[in-house]
């Protein structure tokens, strides 16, 4: 039987899904055990049990100096920056994407400009943002928004342009104005695409968030990682990295679920 025709059964499927995770876990444990056998004081690859203890301590024990549970205040600070930044980008991307996709005059005026702007490396703008907006929340949110907005505009305008011409003509024969075509024909069909595009841009959004926090901040997940790097606190860094990964996976899953719930018609196509 050809390889392309062989499909795993349920048990094999679950085993294959788990396999790479298990392999990485085994490789880490083996490496950690080998290093610790050589030098019990080794800090580079802490034992899994040590990592679990660190995670528990971070999540439950208040910081001795401030009395805060730093793990949760960091999480809150980072998530609110991410949420506001992505939210602003999504709104701008949706409005401009629809306008560029539907209105030839706007397309002529903005499409090339957006393509050029999207080539600017956002991280190169970070110093400018710090100079103009200060090192507070505004510059970090701005970096996230600036970083992913061009992608969202381009993706959503392309999706709007992909709407069958037949539908737009049909709407006109039913008496629709440009505004009602935008609101009742294009917008509802673009919203599931918006969620998809936001899911795709969450990776870059985290990148910009952590970069901004690493350079100048006093809280946040990225700030903490770069702070404890000075003490070679691999246990804390690895806990935070695992936590960030988990957050990203959960957000992605929630967005996918939201899209299925809100737009059932988009699934059956």
């Amino acid at each position: 039987m050809r390889l392309i025709n062989r499909h795993p059964g349920r048990a094999l499927y679950a085993a294959l899904v788990a396999l790479p995770f298990v392999l990485v876990a085994i490789a880490y444990s083996a490496g950690s055990a080998a290093r610790l056998a050589e030098n019990p004081q080794d800090r580079i690859l802490p034992a899994p049990s040590h990592l679990a203890a660190t995670a528990f301590r971070l999540m439950t024990e208040p910081d001795r100096r401030s009395g805060d549970l730093l793990f949760w205040t960091d999480t809150g600070a980072s998530l609110s920056r991410l949420g506001i930044g992505v939210g602003i980008a999504a709104l701008i991307g949706l409005v401009l994407g629809l306008a560029i996709g539907l209105v030839p005059l706007v397309r002529a005026g903005l499409q090339s400009f957006v393509s050029v702007v999207s080539m600017i490396p956002p991280l190169a703008l970070l110093p400018i943002l710090f100079i103009t907006l200060g090192v507070g929340e505004a510059s970090k949110i701005a970096l996230i928004a600036i970083g992913i907005t061009p992608f969202l505009i381009r993706d959503l305008s392309a999706r709007t342009l992909e709407l069958p011409q037949e539908q737009l003509v049909k709407a006109q024969t039913l008496g629709a104005s440009t505004l009602s075509i935008a609101l009742s024909v294009a917008l509802p069909q673009i919203l599931p695409r918006l969620i998809q595009s936001v899911r795709l841009s969450l990776g870059p959004a985290w990148l910009f968030l952590i970069a901004a926090e690493a350079v100048a901040s006093d809280s946040g997940l990225g700030y903490r990682i770069f702070l404890v790097r000075r003490f070679l606190a691999m246990d804390v860094i690895l806990t935070y990295v695992a936590w960030i990964t988990l957050l990203a996976v959960v957000i992605d899953f929630l967005l996918a679920t939201l899209s299925r719930r809100l737009f059932p018609w988009a699934e059956t196509r």
Partner: peptide, 15 residues
């Protein structure tokens, strides 16, 4: 609105 149209495909709104 004075002239209605039906195409072979994509004539109704999927959403």
């Amino acid at each position: 609105r004075s002239r209605g149209i039906v195409f072979q495909r994509y004539s109704v709104f999927p959403h």
